[in-house]
Computed example of a mutant assay.
Amino acid sequence: MIVKNFAVLFTFTFFVFSDTAFVDLPKCKLDNFECMRGLYESVIHGIGKTGIPELKIPPVDPIKLTNVTVNVLGLVNITMVDGVAKGVKDCIFEQFRVNITEERGHQENTCDISIKGHYKIESASPLLEALLQGNAISGEGNGKIKIEKLHLKFDFPFYAQKRDDGEIYMKCIYDLIKYDYEIRGKVGFFADNLYLGNQEISETIMTMLNENWQFVMSSFGQPFVDKGVELYFKFAGYFFDSVPARNYILDDLTPYARP
C-alpha cells in the first residue's frame, strides 16, 4: 500500500499500560513538511494489517468490504457483498503538509489498489432495460479490479480540537475533502457469472472493459474512486481521532484549539 526509496521511515512501537494504549511516535513541527509526510506515512504503514486493538483502530490493509454498493450513473448497482481492498499500506506518500492557521491540509500519494470478492450487479434503470430490448443486466459471483499507480491529490480541512478529556486532537472534516486523481498505470477487470437476460456475457464484457479501460474509467470510474476515498479516509482517520496530538506534534496547539 515500496517505501524502500525513502530515507526516513518511522515505525510504531505499541505499549499497553493499564487499560489504555500508548503510541510512541517521532514528533514533528507542523512546518516541517518532510517530517509530517513521513509521520503520516508511518501511521498508515504502521497500522498496516494489524490495526491498534488497544485503541479500537481496525487494520487499513486489507480493508474489509461488506455490502458496499456503488451506483453507476443511475444505470446499475454494483455491490461488493463480501470482499477486501488491498494496497493502502504500501502507498507511496509524496506530499503531506498542513497549515494550522488556515486549517487546511494537502497530501499526494500513489497506490496500487486491488479489490476482490463476492459481487452482485443488477439493473437500476428501466430505461437501460428498454435500450437492451427488455433484457436486464445481472450477475453474482467473483469479481476483481486492479488499479496500478493511482495518483491521488487531497485538499482537506482540519482543526485542532480540544475535547472533554483535556487533550487536543487533529480533527479532519471528512465531508469537505476535495480530491483529484489520475491513473498512471493501467486498470484490469475480472468478473464471472455476468448475464444479459439469460445469456452469459462475462468473457465478452471483461474483454471490452480491459481493452478500453481508459475510456471506462474516465466515463464511469468516478463513483468507484469516490467510494474508495471515503473508505480510505474513514480508516486513516481512526488514528488521528484516537491519539492526542502531543504524541506526534511538537508545536503548542493550545492557541489554535477549539471544541
Results as ranks from 00 to 15, higher is better:
residue 65 L to D: 10
residue 75 L to F: 15
residue 181 Y to G: 03
residue 35 C to P: 03
residue 50 T to F: 13
residue 114 S to W: 05
residue 65 L to G: 02
residue 228 G to R: 04
residue 9 L to S: 13
residue 243 V to E: 01
residue 40 Y to V: 04
residue 203 E to C: 00
residue 204 T to C: 02
residue 165 D to W: 10
residue 58 P to G: 08
residue 44 I to L: 14
residue 124 A to E: 13
residue 237 G to H: 10
residue 81 V to L: 15
residue 118 H to C: 00
residue 4 K to V: 13
residue 241 D to A: 10
residue 71 N to I: 13
residue 195 Y to Q: 06
residue 251 D to T: 05
residue 216 V to P: 02
residue 178 K to S: 14
residue 182 E to V: 10
residue 108 E to W: 02
residue 59 P to L: 04
residue 127 L to M: 08
residue 223 P to I: 10
residue 168 I to L: 05
residue 202 S to M: 05
residue 86 K to G: 02
residue 101 T to I: 06
residue 68 V to W: 03
residue 234 K to Y: 15
residue 193 N to T: 11
residue 30 L to A: 09
residue 134 G to I: 10
residue 136 A to K: 15
residue 235 F to G: 00
residue 63 I to P: 01
residue 108 E to H: 06
residue 1 M to N: 08
residue 237 G to E: 08
residue 143 G to C: 04
residue 53 P to H: 09
residue 191 A to W: 07
residue 182 E to G: 07
residue 144 K to Q: 12
residue 183 I to A: 07
residue 53 P to N: 04
residue 123 S to G: 14
residue 253 L to N: 02
residue 203 E to H: 08
residue 161 Q to H: 09
residue 160 A to G: 01
residue 73 L to V: 08
residue 128 L to Y: 11
residue 242 S to I: 04
residue 100 I to R: 00
residue 236 A to T: 09
residue 204 T to V: 10
residue 83 G to V: 04
residue 117 G to I: 06
residue 157 P to I: 03
residue 127 L to K: 06
residue 17 F to V: 10
residue 182 E to R: 14
residue 231 L to C: 01
residue 238 Y to I: 00
residue 177 I to N: 03
residue 127 L to N: 10
residue 101 T to M: 11
residue 80 M to S: 01
residue 25 L to F: 11
residue 141 G to W: 12
residue 100 I to G: 07
residue 34 E to H: 06
residue 125 S to C: 05
residue 21 A to K: 01
residue 58 P to L: 11
residue 123 S to F: 01
residue 91 C to T: 11
residue 186 K to V: 02
residue 173 I to T: 12
residue 148 E to S: 09
residue 72 V to E: 11
residue 248 Y to V: 10
residue 148 E to H: 12
residue 33 F to K: 12
residue 114 S to F: 09
residue 221 G to H: 12
residue 135 N to Q: 15
residue 194 L to F: 15
residue 234 K to W: 09
residue 228 G to D: 12
residue 101 T to G: 01
residue 125 S to N: 11
residue 82 D to N: 15
residue 47 I to R: 11
